[in-house]
């Protein structure tokens, strides 16, 4: 039983079979049976997973080539790339792209630093070790909509406590309207997102920290390295893989942001993300064609980010091993 969970799928489980004549035929039967059983066991899950995601995306690509409004199905007609052209020419689309990137960068950067601090504390703390880990995990289990409402009401002028608590801060008084402008709204949206998803980030980073050989850190300390030197020269380089995985997971997750924006502003003051914009086009305006084009564009952005990360990730992996 290995201490570190490893998804080494290439591992083959050769059973020690005595290399005697007469056993060979039995072995090949057996491996063929194993192969069949493998596919039969894996197939249902794989097929359903591909069907429930593959079908909608293909349908979305198809729909995106049509001018198609649900309330006016008679008028559905093929327009090829015209939906994409309209979206790419429209400032609203680029505003949503900008907001999505803005929120993604803010939340991922803040969560990385916050997550790193929390992971280090969880790694080293003695007294209340279990309690801390349990408490830190709780926001992960909270419904995002609940988190959104909690932060929304906390910053409201009528029901909230934030304006009362922080009235000593210049610029904040009991009547400060956080949701009346772009930056105030983005601030609260990001806070809720950070509160809810930092636990996931810090747990991934903690798993990376736990894999570092402590003797290396001790050796650096004996050699007179300062805390900062140990952090930047020993700890961070040795958990690069875990950091990249955590950043990739969170970036792709943050890029889909929808719940917090929908609950708090509904996209007011230019705070629509790509997901919110797609939702409004599809569900509110029932513009299936345009909504599908936006969905495909969002999908392409996610692919692009994943591609960049995977490329960077591979470079890092090789760099860390050489």
């Amino acid at each position: 039983m290995s201490a570190t969970p490893e998804l080494d799928v290439e591992r083959s489980d050769e059973r020690p079979v005595p290399p005697r004549e007469g056993r060979r035929r039995h072995l090949s039967d057996r491996s063929r049976a194993e192969r069949n059983l493998g596919w039969r066991l894996a197939m249902p899950a794989f097929a359903i997973m591909v069907a429930v995601t593959g079908y909608p995306i293909l349908q979305a690509i198809w729909n995106s080539f049509f001018s198609y409004r649900l309330t006016d199905p008679e008028n559905k007609h093929f327009t090829f790339l015209s939906n994409y052209w309209v979206a790419l020419k429209d400032g609203v689309f680029w505003q949503a792209v900008g907001v999505t990137f803005l929120i993604t960068v803010i939340t991922v950067v803040v969560e990385f630093f916050l997550g790193m601090v929390i992971a280090m504390v969880m790694h080293k703390i003695v007294i209340p070790r279990r309690t801390l880990r349990t408490i830190v995990l709780i926001p992960y289990s909270i419904i995002t909509v609940v988190s959104a409402f909690a932060w929304f009401f906390a910053f409201r002028t009528d029901s909230g406590f934030v304006n009362h608590w922080f009235s000593w801060v210049p610029g904040i008084d009991p009547s400060t309207d956080w949701f009346g402008n772009f930056w105030g709204s983005i601030f609260v949206i990001c806070l809720s997102e950070i509160w809810k998803t930092t636990p996931f980030m810090s747990l991934l980073l903690l798993a990376g920290l736990a894999q570092i050989d402590t003797s290396m850190e001790e050796a650096a300390e004996v050699d007179g390295a300062t805390y900062w030197q140990r952090l930047t020269r020993v700890i961070l380089p040795n958990m690069k893989a875990a950091i990249m995985v955590a950043l990739l997971f969170r970036t792709l997750d943050a890029f889909r942001i929808f719940d917090n924006i929908f609950i708090m502003t509904g996209g007011a003051n230019g705070t629509s993300s790509l997901s919110v914009l797609t939702y409004n086009q599809t569900i509110d305006r029932v513009e299936i064609g345009m909504g599908s084009a936006l969905a495909v564009l969002l999908f392409l952005f996610v692919l692009l980010i994943a591609f960049i990360f995977v490329k960077a990730f591979k470079v890092d992996l090789a760099g860390g091993r050489s």
């Binding site: 909608p56 729909n63 889909r256 997901s275 797609t278 569900i283 599908s292 936006l294 495909v296 969002l298």
Partner: peptide, 14 residues
Amino acid sequence: FFPVIAMVTPLFDV
């Protein structure tokens, strides 16, 4: 990693 909203648009119609 699939953006959920990208699945909603076609499913809503179908």
